[in-house]
Structures are given as structure tokens and as C-alpha cells.
């Protein structure tokens, strides 16, 4: 990973309003699970957000604050932005409880690195996501669907805690039946009395049966921190080199632009150098995975 560093600060060039939120309208709100909703936003000026799959935006609600949220829609689907948001903190709670279609909220960004869709061209792709890691992965999957002829075999693996926690159920069903994709999903546990006839168990159990050609494959992993180590162990057994694995890391961020310091991973800023990293750039950094 190359980091650009200016030798000396140039204090005379024009300024940017780095922390000014722009305004966007909440177009629709859809419940995905009891704790997750899908929000669709459009800029008030009608312009596209200019995002790429893997990036995030800082969502701003005056009086509440800001929080980084992964974008879960591909720019190839339109000029809107979709955010799959789990209710966990103050801002996400306010998004869930207070914001209705038609409301105006603020955003900054998009920020951060993105999935290198060019490096993926011609490759077999293994897209592995756990929990709400499917939110940013969905943006990539949509992009690949819209440029399907540019990629080799595409395998989607997804794990959720229980059937009720499964995100994007309609799309997941389409991916499963698609002849263009190999999509499998599993849940960690099925509560008693729940009707369920699909896989049960950790996402790692979906990897051993896969036919992976290490020479032409590339894996992308997005999920909760605990998931990475075990998924990587399974991919290692498949002889997939670490320079053919992309990870997206989650960190607490306040500014999104590499200034506030909350998301540092050793010398890297997750908001600016990430959140999407090639595994070999972070695997040896303390606290990265």
C-alpha cells in the first residue's frame, strides 16, 4: 500500500469545507429485520452521490451527530444511495425512530477506499459476508450483476445469526436461483419452532465443499471481527494466496477523513486508507483482524 505524504504543508492553497454536511432527502424506508432498515436517499440537488461499492458516507442528523454508514447499493443501479442500517447506537437509533420518507438529513462523502472491481475482472470471485457485512457486499454484488460478463464464476456465501436476522431476503432468494451466481447462506442457530429448511451452522462450513482454483480466484470478506480469522483459515486450506483476498474492516470513526484518530490501525486510517484493504496490507498489523 502506498501512502502519499507531502514533505511540507502548503498553507496557502484553497480551503475545503471538509465538515459541511450536504443535504439529501429520505426517499423510502424499508424494514429488513426487526433491527435493520434499508434507507434510500437522493441528493437535493439531484446529482449522483458518486460512490463506489465499498465506500461509506457520514450520515448527519442535527442535534444527534454523525456516524459512518456503509453504502449498500451500486452506482450502476441509479443516482440514489441505499444504506442498510442496524440500530445499535445513538445516530442509527435516531435514523430508525425519527426519520421518515420526505425528511431531509445531512451527509458527507462518499469516503474511503472501494472494492477494486478492475482487479476482479476475469477472476472467479468468492464473496463472503456475515451479519450486516452483507450491506456493503450487496453494493458489490449488484455491481457485478450489472457487469456480469466481466467476471468469472461468482460465489456468494452469507451467514446470519438466525433466520429472522437474514438481510435482503428477496434479493438473496434471487441470487440463490440465479444461473449466473452460486449463492449459499446459513444461519448459526434456528430457534425452536422456526420453520427452516436451509443450512444451519457457521459460515466457515460453506467453504470446504467449494471448488476453488487458487490461480484465478479472488475472495472478498466483510463481516464481524470474529469472523475473519476463521474464514481466513478455511481459505488458506484452499491455498488462496493472501494477496488475492480483500477485506473490509469496521472501525469507530468521527470524521471520516483521517483526522480524528479514532479508526487508526497502527499507521493506517481505516476511514481513508480503508475500509477496504488488501489482506496483505493489514494482516501483520496489530489489532487489524
Amino acid at each position: 500500500m502506498s501512502i502519499t505524504v507531502e514533505k511540507q504543508a502548503d498553507l496557502k492553497d484553497p480551503q475545503e469545507a471538509l465538515y459541511r454536511p450536504l443535504l439529501c432527502k429520505m426517499v423510502s424506508v424499508k424494514e429488513l429485520t426487526p433491527t435493520e432498515k434499508l434507507f434510500r436517499l437522493e441528493r437535493l440537488d439531484g446529482r449522483p452521490f458518486g460512490h463506489r461499492p465499498g465506500q461509506f458516507v457520514q450520515v448527519s442528523i442535527p442535534g444527534i451527530g454523525e456516524a459512518p454508514i456503509s453504502v449498500s447499493s451500486s452506482p450502476s443501479r441509479g443516482s440514489y444511495l441505499e444504506l442498510g442500517v442496524r440500530r445499535t447506537g445513538v445516530l442509527t437509533g435516531a435514523l430508525h425512530e425519527m426519520i421518515q420518507p420526505g425528511d431531509v438529513i445531512g451527509f458527507r462523502g462518499p469516503f474511503g477506499t472501494y472494492f477494486d472491481v478492475d482487479a476482479m475482472k476475469g477472476r472467479d470471485l468468492i464473496l463472503i459476508s456475515g451479519g450486516c457485512g452483507l450491506a456493503p457486499m450487496r453494493a458489490l454484488i449488484q455491481y457485478i450483476e450489472d457487469h456480469r460478463d466481466q467476471y468469472g464464476k461468482v460465489t456468494i456465501l452469507y451467514g446470519a445469526k438466525s433466520p429472522i436476522d437474514i438481510l435482503y431476503k428477496d434479493e438473496l432468494a434471487q441470487w440463490v436461483t440465479s444461473t449466473q451466481l452460486n449463492c449459499q447462506y446459513t444461519v448459526d442457530d434456528v430457534p425452536e419452532g422456526t420453520c427452516w429448511d436451509a443450512n444451519v451452522g457457521l459460515i466457515t462450513q460453506l467453504i470446504p465443499p467449494l471448488d476453488i482454483d487458487p490461480a484465478r480466484s479472488l475472495a472478498v470478506i466483510v463481516g464481524p471481527p470474529i469472523m475473519y480469522r476463521f474464514v481466513l483459515q478455511e481459505l488458506k486450506k484452499k491455498n488462496l494466496p493472501i494477496n488475492q483476498i480483500i477485506v473490509s474492516l469496521e472501525r469507530y470513526m468521527k470524521c471520516g477523513v483521517g483526522k480524528c484518530g479514532h479508526c487508526t490501525i497502527e499507521h493506517l486510517y481505516c476511514c481513508m486508507d480503508g475500509p477496504v484493504f488488501w489482506l496483505n496490507d493489514v494482516i501483520n498489523l496489530a489489532g487489524a483482524l
Binding site: D13, E16, L18, G258
Partner: peptide, 8 residues
């Protein structure tokens, strides 16, 4: 404060 994003 002046590298990459410039902090106004």
C-alpha cells in the same frame, strides 16, 4: 492537517 483531506 494539510495532507490528503485539508482540514479547513
Amino acid at each position: 492537517f494539510s495532507t490528503n483531506f485539508k482540514d479547513d
